[in-house]
Write a protein that binds this DNA or RNA. Structure first.
Lengths: 339, 339
DNA sequence: GTGAAAGCGCTAACAG
DNA sequence: CTGTTAGCGCTTTCAC
């Protein structure tokens, strides 16, 4: 593989000039053209290790997630990738999902051997010493779904979203509105459970609806958990509507309702959060939170910080959007039909 | 961040000795202990770019996928990560899912700036010039779900798996066995569609069942597509059993059957492939193909090649496993009940 | 705008 | 087993 010396010879300039021309630094138009052409002809691509060693920049950013096998994170990743790749960055994945030792290794070694220029951390609850490690890195970090102080953050307003969802149900005339969410299994990874619970409570209180804790049921953020929680709810203290903390949970609710012979939305309204790719298929009313956009925003913020190290941490909130489909209606109103 | 010189001073040895001690090369026990301690005390971690530049090894491997937001790939990734991280490797993701330019950039730049020591490519249909690029890299590649010549490969025997699935249905007494799979949208990315179709045909022929092309219906590898294909099948030429090319497709079939008022398995048996995490929830009989194991095997092969560059390309086939749940039964046999 | 030269922090011979 | 030394291939002053 050709190196910078060959390019310099072919272009008839010094290697310093090649470096500058290729990196968009000062160089005459003609020189730049010749260098570009020589590089092109030789199929030259800069060696990342040499470039990193000399410049301190790796053109690589880390993406840290508590899980990778969930729609939210892979979708986030796609948004991040799209903008980062366009700017010549690769992304290496730090998945905290594995064993505890795997997690320790990531913090103790992977992150510290400075193979990334910055980090995007998604929905992660970090231990104090882990946060210290990140800070000591001295590298820009942007947090998505924000749990890290004094770094740029992109998030959605979960409290607001939950209120929107609950208010939608209230406006339809529901008074027995249940909430399923805030599971414990993800408790240490997500912090949004509580916020969503609070938004639900808040909307209920504002509408003058009595607090009824038996209308809340815990579930992890997946279909199966939503299914079980809903079955319990429906058997014990049947609500006329359910606000599920995610679309996957809501799909579980949908399936549970059907297994019990209830019609949605005639007998039970269901609303989720996400606009998961399955939401359309299941005719689920939901509140879109655009993870891909969140990823793009996070990447943009990181890039901005990389280009302007002195910049203040910024905060970007992605606006949610209501997506009305067929899973919500006025109580006992059968005019809607699922799929 | 401390560098190797500091460690050398603190340990009272030369930097070469530090390097050796840290890399497990020859060094006396006592020296190694002192070096390790000094490094520990200083919080020293080798600079990856310096190390890469000097050694030619990056401790980074690339994982290339046609999509990232599918169960199969994320599960594969988890297997890969587990073994790679343990051996001190990071993994950077090359997702070909984006725009065409994104794909080109990955091949033209990302892969060629030699920031990885090797590559694991999953279920990707590569263009000839892309294969050339990979070969020119001169780096070990292992392919999962194999479409690349002369590199180590791990896969499952899809033909065999399809036969197993179909034979199961035949042994139950079914004679009208449909197949839904082999979608076109993924046609360029996967090659397993055809193989699965062939296995189905083969088992049918061997059992002396007449070929009936109307019992085949195309679907992409997701729930919605499986749902639509099954609805069509059920309306036009109703089979007594369906062999779905993946569990997600099978779940679509399950939902379609229910929406049409059919009971599974009393009125319709359904079998999938994967042992997707939702399979258990839906009571789906399936054939497990263990993507996590596939990932581990791929990583093992890659590591072996990295340690022994001269090694011959190897081929590892992961054995599938039958998982009998509640979605298959003899025709008209109602003794099983879904969930 | 361009070239010469000094590293970036480490690894890998080569001696000893 | 250990120290000395020569790079690895670039980027970045510093002069010109």
């Amino acid at each position: 593989m050709a190196d910078i010396v060959e390019v310099a010879q072919r272009a008839g300039v010094s290697i310093a000039t090649v470096s500058r021309a290729l990196n968009g630094k000062s160089a005459s138009a003609e020189t730049r053209r010749r260098v570009l052409q020589a590089a092109q002809e030789l199929g030259y691509v800069v060696s990342s290790s040499a470039s990193s060693l000399a410049s301190g920049r790796t053109k690589n950013i880390g993406f840290m997630v508590p899980f990778i096998d969930r729609w939210y994170f892979t979708t986030l990743l796609r948004g991040i990738e799209a903008v980062l790749l366009e700017h010549g960055y690769d992304v290496t994945l730090y998945n905290l999902q594995g064993h505890e030792e795997q997690r320790e290794k990531i913090f103790a070694t992977s992150l510290r051997r400075s193979s990334v220029d910055g980090l995007i951390a998604a929905s992660i609850e970090l231990a104090p010493h882990e946060i210290r490690t990140l800070q000591d890195l001295g590298k820009p970090v942007v947090s998505v779904g924000g749990t890290i102080d004094s770094v740029s953050t992109v998030d959605v307003d979960n409290f607001h979203i939950s209120r929107l969802a609950t208010e939608h149900l209230i406006s339809l005339g529901h008074t027995r509105i249940a909430h399923v969410g805030s599971g414990s299994a993800l408790g240490s990874a997500f912090r949004l459970g509580d916020t969503r619970y609070d938004g639900w409570q808040s909307a209920l209180a504002e509408a003058g609806l009595a607090h009824d804790e038996t209308l809340f049921r815990e579930a992890d953020f997946d279909i199966e958990s939503g299914y079980r929680a809903t079955k319990f709810l429906l058997a014990h203290n049947r609500p006329s509507a359910i606000f599920a903390a995610s679309d996957e949970v809501a799909i579980g609710s949908l399936l549970a309702a059907r297994d019990l012979g209830l019609r949605v939305p005639a007998d039970l309204s269901i609303i989720g959060i996400d606009d998961h790719h399955l939401a359309d298929f299941f005719g689920l009313t939901t509140i879109a939170q655009f993870p891909e956009m969140q990823g793009q925003a996070a990447a943009d913020l990181l890039l901005a910080t990389l280009e302007n190290p002195g910049i203040e941490p910024q905060h970007r909130t992605i606006a949610p959007e209501f997506v009305v489909r067929a899973s919500t209606a006025r109580p006992h109103d059968g005019e809607f039909e699922r799929i």
